[in-house]
Design a protein around this nucleic acid. Sequence first.
DNA 1: CTGAAAGCGCTTACAG
DNA 2: CTGAAAGCGCTTACAG
Lengths: 336, 336
Amino acid sequence: MHEVARLAGVSHTTVSRYLQDKNALKPQTRIKVEYAVKALDYRPNLVARSMRTRRSNRLAIVLATGPHFPGRQLAAASETAHQAGYQLEIVSVEGGPKARAARIEDLARSGQVDGILAISSIDLKTKSLGIPLVQSESYDERLHVLGKLAGAAEIAEIIEYLCSLGHRRFLHVAGDQSFTSGRNRKRVYLETIERLGLESVGVYDGDWSGQSGVDAITALPEDCGVTAVVAACDLAALGVMRGARARGWSVPRDLSVFGWDDDEYGRFALPSLSTVAVDRESQGRDAIHRLLAEIHCTPAPEPSTRTVNRLIHRESTAPPPLSADVTGADGRSEAQ
Amino acid sequence: MHEVARLAGVSHTTVSRYLQDKNALKPQTRIKVEYAVKALDYRPNLVARSMRTRRSNRLAIVLATGPHFPGRQLAAASETAHQAGYQLEIVSVEGGPKARAARIEDLARSGQVDGILAISSIDLKTKSLGIPLVQSESYDERLHVLGKLAGAAEIAEIIEYLCSLGHRRFLHVAGDQSFTSGRNRKRVYLETIERLGLESVGVYDGDWSGQSGVDAITALPEDCGVTAVVAACDLAALGVMRGARARGWSVPRDLSVFGWDDDEYGRFALPSLSTVAVDRESQGRDAIHRLLAEIHCTPAPEPSTRTVNRLIHRESTAPPPLSADVTGADGRSEAQ
DNA sequence: CTGAAAGCGCTTACAG
DNA sequence: CTGAAAGCGCTTACAG
């Protein structure tokens, strides 16, 4: 910066002012500084600026490591942050909720970020971090308290739809119950079965994996009479379809399968997978907007995610086999 | 820090020294400082430290935005960086190679990171950034120059294997040709077909999508005689299987399909997908090791990725239909 | 082994 | 509209 000031024949104070607001300078001065900045390809030292201003214009998003990076949320979050003049730092932390909480405390005190978004569950004892923290998990919980449980509408819709096709006996392959979303889907599944007076042969507690879908089907008694499976995610649904094939059950003729996620492969699976399209971009945007609101002490914006998830009907769902209505349990024995 | 010094009854210099090396203090002093740090839950301001030391102990990994976040590489890279005492910042940039290059220049000058890893292609004019930069793309190129083209061994192995099963006429569904990996796989496909004296009905220039796989099959003339498809990725391979079904061709009876990536869904697809398991963790680790080597001015470590990719044989590959050997082109007409 | 002082590169009152 | 000065919270020679 001193070199720029020297070349422009002004003080470094003036250069700094130019960087803050080009119009704060006399046109004549501005031109000189402008030239010097360009000529020297000067870029400010952001660390020094940040130390002085006590702001970094950076946000951190803290999440668990693992193969399932929420890429679309992160991309949308990153874009939203940029538009507001912030850089988004993605911090993936090994270990569990405690490790993530520890990392968040470090980050908060480090002065490197102005706000933190936690999208994996965290176990935080400290109440005040000194900077805003937004938790997706607690967000989910809050919506539940408000009677607007995230994901509730869609699971209910799936079951109502399958019911309208004639299905009466269901199975749920649940997601990891340490996730709010996994718990929510399971709860709403059970509530909806109850509410509509349908039957559930049970819930298989899975872990989002394809294998859990296979196992859920493998564990079923031959005469269980299930004609529709609601899986907590597409991968588990794919596993269900594979497990069904292994038992000689045809999808969707003998068994209808519904997934969740609208993963790209679901469109090309055989049969293609009925699923729920989740607006991950909105999730990412909403989370950043909430964080920015806290940073700027403005009221929290209304989330848009709730309204945008929608069911996608593909080849994996159909009416139940006719015999299922009549004989109940053993309607598919001829398929063996 | 001043509060810590006051509580401990020492100078802030001593506190700073304690933070650098606890053994540099007289035991008696150390205990006092230790207590004060704990009592006040003191954590250093990393921005100030970084300004003073001119080092941040942070690395940035710059990549394109998009739905396909390389989660496993990033997780492994992050872990490797941590082990070396660095934080890894993941910076996803919208736009093309120019936008990423611009962002890299900013980052380099900002003082916020000690080194940068670019895993998407970049268009950088500046030669010296002032800090080390490692490019995965140029890495691929370099390996090619050295006669060890990334991915060469596996594509050749796939074709040799299919050839050993009796296949003679092939199709390649290529990946996006703006990716080094996409170009490499296509080139090696063509070279291997040539080398083994096999036939290729052509290369379908795809874009890694499932639809490109469907389209590649749809575009095939009925009498083309292809019995094996080498797809550039699993998703395209899945599309190929779906396209084949639409034409009444059964996989693997009429058509063998090989993918690349070992994506999780491939194990549960019907039929399950033969593929190449890529050691993404090693890729991530290797890249960070190379960057750390440049930062510490030590010789570049030997990469381990080349040796760890391996073929996985599943249900989507089998010998060609008998008629294919005899009649050549129209061997599958009865399947229609 | 410990402390007083200088300085990292910025920004921002405060004068002029 | 511009400049000289102070200071953000650290680290690190330099003395003692």
